Amino acid sequence: MCESCVDRIFSSGPAPCPVAGCHKTLRKAKFRKQTFEDIGVEREVDIRRRVMQILNRREEEFATKRAYDDFLEQREMIIANLVHGTDVAKTETDLQRYAQENLSSIRANQALEAQEATTFQERQTLEQEQARLRREAARQEYENERRELLAGREDVLSRLAAGRAGDAAAIAREGQRVLLKKSSARRSEEERIRQKQAVLRGSELRKGVAAPTTAGITGAPDSGLVKGLKKIEVPVPDKPYDPFGGLVPDKRDYYTLQEHYPSTYLDPIRQDTRMLAGGYDLREYYSRTLLEAFAGLGCFLDEELSESGSLDASKPVATQGAAMAAATSGGNASKA
């Protein structure tokens, strides 16, 4: 449609399409200037742009390269169906369902694409600025060389005019040597500056033009339309820091320490200020006594020896000396 017809029909708001048989509602904001001469190419570009904004999965999101290639082929088939009018209703339904189920991953990938575009533009601007600086440096270098050459020639001419006729050759050689020395020093300094600029340029590119990653992208793997996505692993939150490594202070498995135990021997000490004045605490005595009493309840020698393999669990646990003493005592008993 021409621009005047668009202004005339849709300036007051949305209106039905004026084409006979088309019942779509159109809006003025959706119209834009035609870029390609063929309207079919223009329509395919619009469809391709819309589909690729929804199906914008990246290669690093797939488990294999084959899965990513299958995704690209599937996306091209969807575009072809919409362009040629094949199963349009089903294709649009699948696209809308996929867009609703994977909204977070779509937005994340769009943000990454925008970041990549910004990074590329910054890199292009940086390269253009560096090319301009190199051209400016080359022009300045040419001007400096020409100025030094003219100054050297004028110095040689002035010295020749003021000197004797026999000194002409020596003055010319000296002037040539001075020019060569200056040119060599200038070239070495310029080479050092170029190397320094190259190092700085590389560090800036590594720092400011870092490749974006897909960290933080979430979504349902194999969400019905796209297959072969990597499984999303939700990181396990870190547990609170435990300085004792799970050990609970003053916790015992076989007993609970009480504040007081009745005892005819300890009760007088509890009331004796001479014993308590130096810091003596009966709880320490209770804790040590109970710990020694229950210390061996968790030790099972037969199981530990059988697991270590040092002794056979079916045989009685006895030392060689005990066995010999038992045999000797048994022999003496039989003689008696």
Rank of each mutant, 00 (worst) to 15 (best):
L82A: 01
E190G: 04
E304C: 14
E101N: 07
L157V: 02
D69H: 01
A89E: 08
D70Y: 00
R283A: 15
Y142G: 14
I39G: 05
P212E: 03
R66C: 07
R159E: 02
G228H: 05
K196P: 00
K315Y: 01
M52C: 14
G224K: 04
I193M: 15
G228F: 01
K239N: 07
Q100H: 07
R252K: 06
R49G: 03
Q130R: 15
G331P: 00
A161Q: 09
S223L: 03
R147E: 14
R159M: 02
T213L: 11
E190P: 00
R146G: 00
E143N: 12
E44Y: 10
S104L: 14
P14S: 12
R134L: 14
Q176I: 08
L301G: 01
S4Q: 08
L297P: 00
S12H: 12
Q197K: 09
L282I: 14
S12Y: 09
G216K: 06
G219W: 02
T264L: 13
E307A: 15
S308Q: 07
S287P: 00
A99G: 00
T214P: 01
Y286E: 03
H84E: 14
K231E: 15
L72D: 02
V19L: 10
L301E: 09
D94G: 01
E37D: 08
T91L: 02
L291E: 09
T319H: 11
L95K: 06
G298L: 02
G40I: 04
G175N: 03
P212I: 11
A131L: 07
D238C: 13
A220K: 10
R164P: 05
G246A: 15
G85W: 03
Q100R: 13
D312Y: 08
T264F: 05
L247N: 04
R57Y: 08
T93W: 10
A322L: 12
A172L: 13
A185D: 09
K239G: 06
T118A: 15
L282V: 15
G331N: 15
D46F: 06
G85A: 06
R134N: 09
L55E: 00
R132N: 09
A325L: 14
K196Q: 13
G228W: 04
G330D: 13
D250L: 05
G208D: 11
E141W: 08
R48L: 02
A313E: 11
G208K: 15
T273C: 15
V83D: 07
E204H: 00
E141L: 11
S184T: 05
S287Y: 00
D267L: 10
I47M: 02
E136I: 06
E191I: 03
Y261T: 03
F10D: 04
C2T: 09
L311N: 02
Q110P: 00
N81L: 05
A162N: 10
A313Q: 04
A117L: 13
K207R: 14
V199F: 12
D272T: 09
D38W: 02
F120S: 14
G85E: 02
K28D: 00
E154M: 13
G278E: 01
